[in-house]
Design a protein around this nucleic acid. Structure first.
Length: 440
DNA sequence: TCTGGGGTCCTAGGACCC
DNA sequence: TCTGGGGTCCTAGGACCC
């Protein structure tokens, strides 16, 4: 079996993966140190599911993605601190981390809100760095820099490929001996280490493929490395083959350091409670599409196609459970009032009186750059210019004074549809009125 | 009774064209 | 019994990620 991970030479390019530990929980802890060493969980929007857990909460057996109601008793019994998601706080803390990493790397890929891949080159290292372990030493430097500047703990994995860097990060996180930084390329015992990695935990092998592989007796990353290329290509697509090669130490996935524009933008949320009347659903939809349009303008795009979907309970109403419709706009746009009109038209078609709706959503697709808009002569009206000025003004005002300081009347003021978020911490870093106060 | 939200990519198969 | 060959485009469905 072709299992050797050769060429771990010192000059080989390394991938770093920096991963913030229990990110949402750690953000809460920065501003509330009383939470340190205590079990803490953070909930999804609408307080429905548990989407982040401190190590202490994990130790209690609370799984990722679990619905809150199933664990309410356990939470109460063990005094678990519970927070509603505070995405403006987490987003801001994330951009601080990425800013610091950007200063320390030759290339940076912001992979998610709490993870980044990077390359470092010689000029990032201090002059007196020597020894073949300097990649690891630099990892420790990055780790303490983020702790000092931002207050967040991170784990850092290093490897000859992205997939192996991910695996390194798991060792860094789980085994205290490594003090948060691990480089698999330095290890003579790589193969034994990869035998410790559950196949389902390999980046790119999800639940489905994991199950399929286990049925074939492939239980670990090491087992997978010995598989036949052709079989993997046929049964797991080109992406499976890339994962296979990456595990063997052949880099197939590069850093993607330019942020690509989104190809679709989707905004959807559960209602706080089930809705039957159309009016609050119209308002929720207007509000969601306003937010989608703001994201659209942020990346300087316009949309040609808009879809709306509406969801009832799967159990009560299997026939009407999910209904959607979409249509092409006569002219691509990012002008919120036109988009509100469009989603309301869709809703008229989809809505049936008497049903209990629990969620609605809007998807903007077929996005193109705003400056690509081709206009025929008769379409070049002053209106277009006014629309763009109005949107720009709104966006500037809302970014300066806070989200939704001004909004369209169609979004309503009662917000009957709004989800509950009863346990949210303050926006310590993004709202002047919610700064941390310290009593002495 | 109550189970998130927001993305990307790949592939097979059908429609259509010359 | 016979029923081309090769291409493109679109879509739905299935997989993955955090």
């Amino acid at each position: 079996m072709p299992l050797s991970l050769s060429n771990s030479g010192i000059f080989m390019k390394r991938f770093y993966l920096v991963d913030c530990n229990n990110f949402f929980v750690s953000c809460e802890r920065v501003f509330n140190p009383a939470l340190l060493n205590k079990p803490v969980v953070v909930l999804s929007s609408g307080d429905a599911c548990i989407i982040a857990r401190s190590n202490e909460a994990k130790a209690l057996g609370i799984p990722m993605g679990a619905p809150l109601y199933e664990y309410e008793a356990l939470i109460k019994k063990n005094n678990v601190h519970v927070y509603s998601a505070n995405f403006s706080l987490y987003g801001d803390m994330s951009s601080r981390v990425m800013q610091t990493l950007g200063e320390c790397a030759s290339e940076l890929e912001v992979y998610s809100i709490d993870e980044a891949f990077l390359h470092v080159s010689d000029h990032n290292f201090p002059v007196n760095y020597s020894s073949r372990f300097y990649y690891t030493s630099y990892g420790h430097h990055l780790k303490s820099l983020i702790k000092t500047r931002i207050g967040l703990p991170v784990s850092i994995g290093i490897g000859p490929t992205k997939t192996l860097a991910k695996i390194s990060a798991e060792f860094a996180k789980k085994n205290p001996v490594y003090d948060g930084v691990f480089d698999i390329s330095e290890r003579p015992d790589k193969e034994q280490l990869l035998q410790l990695i559950d196949i389902k935990d390999v980046w790119g092998i999800g639940r489905r493929y994991g199950k399929k592989l286990i049925a074939l007796g492939i239980k670990t990353a090491y087992d997978f490395m010995g598989m036949d290329d052709a079989w993997v290509r046929k049964n797991m697509t080109i992406n499976g083959l890339k994962t296979l090669h990456e595990l063997r130490g052949i880099s197939c996935l590069d850093l993607e350091d330019v942020q690509e524009d989104k190809k679709t933008i989707c905004v959807s949320r559960l209602f706080g409670e089930k809705l039957t009347a159309i009016e609050p659903i119209r308002e929720a939809l207007a509000s969601y599409v306003s937010s989608a349009a703001r994201k659209l303008r942020l990346q300087k795009s316009i949309t040609k196609q808009i879809s709306v979907f509406i969801v009832t309970s799967k159990y009560h109403d299997p026939h009407n459970y999910f209904r959607s419709m979409s249509f092409e706009l006569s002219m691509p746009t990012s002008y919120t009032p036109l988009l509100i009109k469009a989603v309301h038209r869709c809703l008229e078609q989809l809505y049936k009186p008497g049903l209990q709706y629990k969620k609605v959503g809007v998807v903007l697709s077929d996005l193109v750059a705003a400056d690509c808009l081709q206009l025929s002569t008769y379409e070049q009206t002053p209106d277009l210019n006014n629309q763009s000025i109005l949107m720009k003004t709104m966006d500037i005002m809302n970014s300066r004074w806070g989200r939704d300081k001004i909004f369209f009347a169609a979004c309503g003021t009662k917000q009957l549809w709004k989800m509950k978020q009863t346990r949210k911490s303050q926006c310590y870093t993004t709202n002047w009125n919610e700064l941390l106060t310290i009593k002495v």
